[in-house]
Design a protein around this nucleic acid. Sequence first.
RNA 1: GUGACCGUAGCCGAGUGGUUCAGGCGGCUGGCUGUGACCCAGUCCACGAGAGUUCGAUUCUCUCCGGUCACCCCA
Length: 423
Amino acid sequence: MSLKAVKGMRDILPPSSAVWNRVEGVAREVFRTCNYHEIRTPIVEETALFARGVGAETDIVGKEMYTFEDRDGSSLTLRPEATASVMRSYIEHRLDQIPGVQKLYYMGPMFRRERPQKGRYRQFYQIGAEAIGSESPLVDGEVIEMGVELLRRSGLEGFTLLLNSVGDHKCRPAFVELLKEKLTEVAPRMCGDCQRRAVSNPLRVLDCKVPEDQPIIETLPSIQDHLCPECSAHFAAVRSYLDHRGIPYEVRPRLVRGLDYYMRTTFEMTHSGLGSQNTVLAGGRYDGLAESIGSRVPAPGVGWSMGEDRLVMTVEAAGSASGVLAKDALVVVAFTEGEATRNAAVSAAAELRWRGEIRTEVIEGKLKKVFEVANKLNARVAVICGETEVAAGTLSIKDLESREQWDVPREELLEQVEKCLNK
RNA sequence: GUGACCGUAGCCGAGUGGUUCAGGCGGCUGGCUGUGACCCAGUCCACGAGAGUUCGAUUCUCUCCGGUCACCCCA
């Protein structure tokens, strides 16, 4: 039995890896424009960080983490998400002492031991942004707008922005209690899952998709009607920002997020092409996170995380043809066996690569073979270093599209190849 | 964690209780001695693992492993 990748984890191979690079490139450009700076945190953290940050009662912490005991007995965990790590780092390095809002972004693998399915892997990749140090709804708006722009520029079309406010530590507990009361009456008439949720996690009942339950859910209280004045005003300001910027969204009072640290603004961006896992980007405000992981300094923040696997999936499905750009044209340097010809080929290739910045491949063999390979590689130009050329102190250049071929003095190689490529 | 479906070469994909499995793509070699296409010939590579039923299983049954999709949950 040969070895295989671990279940739920996969290799990303060319040509798909090029799409990943493109998405990451677009993201870095968007972040640069918005004055976000990269943060790289460890993939392994103390287990307590996630237990306290994400919430001990969440599914993520309760049953999806890769946790192990280190040799010294400490409990470590492969990060299931990055916001807790970013906040830990922010606090540890006293980034609150730096003037202004800290605007940070990250990209990298996360680990959750869920059952794999479409758009869900045990090692998956997130690109995320966090703005820490401000409670202002302006920042919420900016962060959301940045997410929308990232999806757009990545080539994703037809996604939907869903928006909600889940209140804060003042108004949410009261709402949950109210919801629980109502549920004791109606839950028995709902689906099995909802009956369970009514006790374990009442907010999730609001998110149930069973058609028969919808009429009942309609009768349940809405968090939107129970926000405290401060949360209500904050939410209105976020909506105002989006309205002013012309960013379409739908308020979903039933939108609930699965991580405990969210408060006030929450949002999701969904796309129909993803199947069951239709959320491509999601986030919200987490003003209480810093304190829950033991910080004395307040660190209100808002951010989102994007499922890179899911975005790549839809971008690839859209089939945005990855045409070969002119600057990506390949030049093949071919030589026949022999030390003199090899040296000539190697130095010719070096010149094309390092001085000309031209994508170059060196191939040894009989010329028929070499041309077959060049053809399969879709090379644009071949440079031939055979015994004849080396003896004459020249090189032969062949335009593989027009099939024209001519000899050039060794010194004119780069110039001639560039000319040929720019034709 | 639950359920459904699936598992034949590097990839796609037919097929059968009975001489180790069609075809296509691909790889390699040659026909074609320093020139790409096409064509031709040869060649390479597979029934996920184990157990059971059977005279005999890739085919039927079970278990496991893996994949896919859905539930759940989430990015």
